[in-house]
Amino acid sequence: MRLGLVIDLDTCVGCHACAVACKEWNTSGTTAPLTDYDPYGARPSGVWFNRIRHYEVGEYPHNKTINFPMSCMHCENAECVTVCPTGASYKRAEDGIVLVDQNKCMGCNYCSWACPYGARELDRVSGTMKKCTLCIDRIYDREIPEEERQPACVLTCPAHARMFGDLDDPESPVARAVRQRGGYQLMPELNYNPTNHYLPPRVHAPIPTDDLKKKAVRKVKEWVNRVVER
């Protein structure tokens, strides 16, 4: 089993709801708290497992805004685990989730250097490295209804741009979405083989603008202009 997320860049509206839901759930979760520094001051900062960035892709008029959520990719070749000297970072054999044992971490930052995706952030208060747990305390919780056994970010996404599932199973909805939509991994040249995949924006036929029917007011305006010119 290889659990992970599939993120649809076509439908993501960039509302940051996934990041807020993540912060809310995990600040009382297994690696809690997600400390904030100066939250109401001039220089607010803090620990987040999920960050959304916004890019412009292409050149005008063929440009597009892409909202880009990023959290731990739960890589197959998780170098963050390889470089950890204490054994605090580990990758679970049964579902591929990468976790940090908060009782073993010595806060040397080395794993964050090894992560190309910026998934790991040091909590200055606890002195330990923290990261996305794929809501391990939700997805295996038998006390909550089965449809809610998903990461908080996936449940909250209003655009259904996030999907959670087993990418090892070729018939799972996530694997099918990756297959059908040409889902891809980030920075494949580094060979980390991330589990999370991104679905590119769909290619839409361009809306023609040159043969739009002219509005009546504009027609009158143009006629007036012609008359004045004469």
């Binding site: 204490t86 054994g87 605090a88 073993k104 010595m106 806060g107 040397c108 330990t128």
Partner: peptide, 15 residues
């Protein structure tokens, strides 16, 4: 001095 949580430094010899 670079460690944020030096009480676990002894574990750094294990891996």
């Amino acid at each position: 001095a670079h460690l944020a949580n030096p009480k676990n430094a002894w574990r750094a010899f294990t891996r």
